[in-house]
């Protein structure tokens, strides 16, 4: 009898302990409880110099797990930064603003309004921060056109079409970054090309741009503006490599990669591409590179920007600004 009882008790011994979680699923009080703010929404500073590496820390505490958003809006630029989360607390881990932008344009030196938004809560929680200097971005800047003139080392060609307005504009309210941008507008009824601009590396003091050899680490970025109601602009970026390091690009035996962007949106938008994702194009179709077939950003000698539009569709207009190469990641504006 004893041995049988011993046998029967074996399973109880084997399974005698359980590693328990105390609770499964979301906290019911968080789901059903009435929202309350236990520590007021505030910013840790009134002024900030992002260019010096300063940040703004927003903080608040809630009585329950809460979905929240902070909307920061530039009073002059209209730039907008949105931070969001689901937490009981806004702190350094989720409420730090380092000057970046969610909706273009970039923030400028300006006063900004920060608003904490809680869904289904009508109360408003606001703070103000003065940006003394906007954030700067690491990378190699091809141009932000802030000099107001074309660099003599660049190569420019513009058709003599109708209503041509192809040049650098000084327009603080319309520029996504600082005050200037390149306006590209006009009607060319006989050709897709309206104008082009070559950024030659020689204009920057070398035969190639100062990029690394790792095409997976290099990103090309720029800001493009689309206008409603006009003929759709097509911006063709060409990346011409000087593979034999002779100081010139030979299109018959050296690689030229390209990126074609159809500007079919309204307003400013960031365009970013990893260098290794660029492809060779021929008449808009993927083609075999003419050179070694290897992406060599360190041998990039010319970046061409071609402003194109269907000649049968009339006036086309777009803008470009802030052409920059960044490393490791696409531009975080």
């Amino acid at each position: 009898m004893k041995k049988y009882l011993l046998l029967l008790s074996i399973p109880f011994v084997i399974f005698s302990c359980r590693k328990d979680n105390l609770v499964e699923g979301p906290n019911i009080d968080d789901l059903l409880g009435e929202f309350g703010i236990t520590e007021a929404f505030k910013a840790d500073r009134d002024t900030v110099n992002f260019a010096n590496g300063e940040n703004v820390l927003f903080t608040a505490k809630f009585n329950k797990l809460t979905d929240w958003e902070i909307h920061i809006t530039g009073q002059n630029s209209g730039a907008k930064k949105v931070m969001s989360g689901q937490s009981r607390e806004i702190n350094a881990s989720n409420g730090t603003w380092e000057g970046s932008t969610t909706d273009l344009p970039f923030f400028k030196a300006e006063n900004c309004d920060a608003e904490l938004i809680i869904p289904d809560i009508t109360d408003t929680y606001t703070e103000s921060v003065e940006v003394r200097a906007p954030k700067t971005n690491a990378g190699f800047l091809l141009s932000d056109f802030e000099s107001g003139v074309f660099d003599p080392g660049w190569t420019k060609f513009v058709q003599t079409g109708a209503d041509m307005d192809w040049g650098i504009k000084n327009d603080a309210s319309g520029s996504p970054e600082k005050n200037h941008y390149l306006n590209m507008a006009g009607t060319v009824s006989w050709d897709w090309l309206i104008g082009l601009l070559d950024f030659n590396a020689t204009a920057y003091g070398a035969n190639t741009f100062p990029l690394s050899s790792n095409a997976d680490n290099e990103y090309f970025n720029c800001l493009l503006y689309g206008e409603a109601g006009n003929n759709e602009s097509v911006i063709l970026f060409q990346f011409k490599e000087d593979e034999n390091s002779d100081g010139t690009f030979n299109e018959t035996n050296e690689d030229m990669y390209a990126l074609e962007v159809r500007v079919n949106w309204e307003g400013w938008q960031l365009v970013s591409v990893k260098y290794s994702d660029l492809t060779a194009l021929e008449n808009g179709q993927p083609a075999t590179p003419k050179g070694n077939g290897v992406h060599n950003p360190d041998k990039l000698g010319i970046v061409s920007v071609l402003d194109l539009a269907d000649p049968a569709q009339g006036f086309a207009s777009t803008r470009i600004d802030y052409l920059i190469f960044t490393q490791n990641n696409a531009l975080q504006p």
Binding site: D20, V23, E24, G25, N27
Partner: peptide, 8 residues
């Protein structure tokens, strides 16, 4: 219950 559902 052995484990609380949404609460201890």
């Amino acid at each position: 219950e052995i484990r609380g559902m949404g609460t201890t």
